[in-house]
């Protein structure tokens, strides 16, 4: 799961721009190309859920942010109970990681 305004990437946009294009001013482009925002991650199957944040972001309302995250975690734990044993989970995890990065352009 990822928060609505969370990001996840192998490298920072700054690092990507300077290594790939040797140009630190291309940070914004790198941020877009890295597909690191929550909706991108969901689309690419890197996460299976985006957790909504309070209006203006989690830092505007800690209590509300925590309530939303708690609800999502409790739901995930419940789902976990109904899933098979450890082996199924490991197999599921393995398949998930194997499928990452493989998609039709």
């Amino acid at each position: 799961m990822v928060l609505e305004y969370g990001t996840y990437s192998v490298i920072s946009p700054e690092g990507c721009a300077s290594i790939l294009w040797k140009d630190g001013s291309k940070t914004e482009e790198a941020a877009a190309r890295l597909k690191m925002t929550a909706p991108d991650l969901l689309r690419l199957g890197v996460v299976d859920r985006v957790v909504e944040e309070p209006a203006g972001g989690a830092h505007q309302d800690y209590d509300d942010a925590a309530r939303k995250v708690e609800a999502a975690i409790v739901e995930a734990l419940r789902e976990l109970e109904t899933t098979g044993g450890a082996e199924d989970l490991v197999e599921d995890r393995y398949r998930r990681f194997r499928s990452m990065g493989a998609f039709v352009a």
Partner: peptide, 24 residues
Amino acid sequence: TPWQKVQLSRHPNRPSTLDYVHRM
């Protein structure tokens, strides 16, 4: 934009693990 979201995700006031743990 994606870059703005990155900046938001690095926001210094953004709650971190303990902020969540003590509430959840």
